[in-house]
Nucleic acid binder design. Structure first.
Lengths: 332, 332
DNA sequence: CTGCATTTTGGCAGCGCTGCCAACAGGAAT
DNA sequence: ATTCCTGTTGGCAGCGCTGCCAAAATGCAG
């Protein structure tokens, strides 16, 4: 009942209140080592009575293990990353790991700064999006000795662990699907693909696959900023103004594709007979539109889960391909 | 060039390498206190050469200031919370604060556990969603001595700082708008409003406002789980099956409303002449649908920004109302 | 009871950094 | 030259906890 007014309670105070040694309190609280039931009860009673909250900062310093996992992600607006965080968070939580994050806005320079800042917390692992990082980032990461997990991309070389799928393969599958459906005048509407390297890889692989079949991309419209539904809508409008006779559009992701879908609805362009639409990501929302979107479903939550589990298991360096699924939908 | 192979570099090693005292290195690195330019250069050179990364765990312990801000949020699937994180993260970053987060799934018991876990890191502030917390959560928070910011709800009593808007007022504004537009047989499609207390408050205030005008709610359909586009679509379908002659629907949020919107499109129900739709949140996407959604725009990113700024400024306890904006849209 | 194997327990030295304080080094003023 | 003052610098005691080790308590067979 009588909680100390201000001063933060320390383990030493709990020990004194319980009439035992500090290390005994520590053992009981971490349920590590051996102690009698009687001691356990006395300690817990004191903890309860004083309202003791362990100081993990001190604990981490003493044991050189922070149980912190750092996420350095490009964005929180793109649902992909919250999904990954969600998957990983669920797994980490059960082992009493905490998640720290920082957002890079797709900027390698900022990524480097954020990684440095995170490393200062001596995390158990750092999770990053993609395989492309600055020289400095890679160097710091290697020197840090902590686990590194690169997510959502397998088209390249990983530093340590990598969990994801091949963006290039997904794009090729999309291209083959669209050609198989008979589309011949295919356009692309995308967003900044220099900064979003995964979108860039998809675009490159998609174009290559079309060319391999002798049906090169007919037109493209690239929005300078981040992907969004609005950018997709505007992008399609602009592209159609320039190149009206397209029969299908490959979008850089589902957000963009939804924008295109809405544009067609607003303009009375019938899908897919007049214009087919194909996306990427497999957002939940895109399954519920009047016509389900044709797209690639990526296992984003699973990527987070598997990544977290690998870290918990202290697995050896490896690359895990979680694949993707082509959703035929009704828009292409 | 020659980075030590494994062992983590400490400040003491940097001090020795630079030929200065430890406290001097500390002062230079934190740019705090005075030192000569020459010393500064020598220290920075040593830092560079050894690849030193400060250990903030040790720093936090020694200075009793973690510069960590803890977010305990209900969900990452609902874009509302990533938006808040984004706003706060942007502001915190400039002051070298780090964000830690945990997800409660709208469960007060889990919230309590997560708050306890976060408090163990001695954060500078804890940010929570809403004003409803368990007895234990409130007690811990008060005893912790750290700043507490309750977000996105002002209808109740705050523990310390509160930043948001009144959900009740937003719901009343929605009701009045719908009545003014002439809708008379209004239904509600929502999600779990016991766990999502803010949605619950909106629902209650909305019903009260309708009743005050003698036009009580005609029907309701409540999905047991979290909000989603799919739940909105199914909810509307079910509600219309039971109560076909509605002329407008108030949805618990924009995700649900989009689901309803898609249902109408799929069934050829014309909006708003046959059925009007009104949402809540003002998602970007909802502005780009063929008809922009009628809804309430909430300043989610600003909530995060202001909350973070208050913490940085060590502002006195207060409540800040950031208001909301009614978007007339074309669906109601 | 004794001796020995276990189980419990407490003491204490750090973990790497910061805060405080005393100690200096140069000038400028006297 | 002496005194002061301002600007720099190093030493060292913790911050609160964990890991290690030795000491104490307990159990049990002989």
């Amino acid at each position: 009942m009588n909680v100390k007014p201000q001063a933060t309670v320390t383990l030493a105070e709990v020990a004194e209140a319980a009439g035992v040694g500090e290390s005994t309190v520590s053992r009981v609280l971490r349920n590590h080592g051996s102690f009698s039931q009687k001691t356990h009860d006395r300690v817990m009673a004191a903890v309860e009575r004083l309202g003791y909250v362990p100081n993990r900062i001190a604990g981490a310093l003493a044991s050189a293990g922070s149980r912190l996992v750092a996420f350095v992600i490009p964005s929180l607006s793109n649902i992909v990353f919250p999904d990954v965080l969600r998957g990983a968070g669920g797994v980490l939580e059960t082992s009493h790991y905490q998640s720290v994050f920082a957002v890079t806005d797709y900027d390698p320079g900022r990524e480097e700064a954020m990684v440095a800042a995170m490393l200062a917390w001596r995390p158990s692992a750092v999770m990053l999006a993609g395989l492309e990082h600055s020289e400095g980032t890679a160097k710091m990461l290697r020197a840090s000795g902590c686990r590194v997990v690169e997510l959502l991309d397998l088209d390249g070389t990983a530093l340590d662990l990598a969990v994801g799928f091949s963006n290039a393969a997904a794009a090729r599958a999309s291209a083959e699907f669209m050609l198989r459906r008979g589309y011949r005048r295919i356009g692309y509407v995308g967003h900044d693909l220099v900064r979003d390297t995964r979108a860039g890889k998809r675009f490159a692989a998609f174009c290559a696959a079309l060319e391999a079949e002798g049906k090169p991309l007919v037109g493209r419209e690239i929005h300078a900023g981040a992907s969004s539904v609005e950018a997709g809508r505007l992008g399609l409008e602009r592209l159609l103004a320039r190149v009206p006779d397209l029969d299908a559009i490959y979008f850089s992701n589902d957000d963009m594709a939804l924008g295109g879908y809405f544009h067609c609805m607003a303009r009375g362009i019938s899908i897919p007979s007049q214009l087919a639409i194909f996306g990427y990501n497999g957002l939940d929302m895109a399954r519920v539109t009047p016509q389900p979107l044709s797209t690639i479903r990526t296992p984003r939550v699973a990527v987070g889960q598997v990544a977290a589990q690998l870290v918990l298991d202290d697995a050896p360096s490896q690359t895990i391909d979680l694949g993707f699924e082509l959703i035929e939908g009704e828009t292409a």
